[in-house]
């Protein structure tokens, strides 16, 4: 089993690749790999509650976020510094996350076999 890091560092709206990117993470989990999702930079906004991408005829990722435990994806990391930049606190997020400092995340990244971003 490999450890695969998937880094969401862009908003999921404005860059439609996000949807196909998450498909990749789910597929990795379906192949019994250890999947870690990391939200940083602008990407932290993807977790915010009460988004209505339906109004732009884009898919809402909330069902995917809520389904992560079903796929055995239990490591959802968020970079604290990015949360500060965007003025967000954990209570504003759709799912429970593990907020870590940039330094702590870097240590975890060193353990990854592969790192993906989009």
């Amino acid at each position: 089993m490999k450890t695969l890091f998937f880094i969401v560092n862009k908003s999921l709206q404005g860059n439609v690749c996000g949807q196909e990117f998450l498909d990749m993470a789910l597929m990795a989990a379906a192949f019994d790999q250890k999947v870690v999702l990391l939200f940083e930079g602008e990407g932290v906004n993807a977790l915010v509650k009460n988004q209505c991408p339906d109004s732009m005829e884009l898919k809402n990722i909330v069902p995917v976020l809520n389904a992560l435990p079903i796929y055995d994806i239990n490591d959802v990391l968020v970079e604290e510094e990015s949360m500060d930049v965007w003025g967000l606190v954990e209570e504003e997020f759709e799912i429970s996350v593990n907020a870590l400092s940039r330094k702590a995340i870097k240590e975890q990244l060193n353990l990854a076999d592969h790192v993906f971003s989009f």
Binding site: K2, D23, M27, A28, A30, F31, Q33, H114, F116, F118
Partner: peptide
Amino acid sequence: GLGLLMEAVIESDRHITFGA
């Protein structure tokens, strides 16, 4: 499908992505 991507990732020593 994406399954073939994942198989490649698992089988390879290195997986390298080109393009954002």
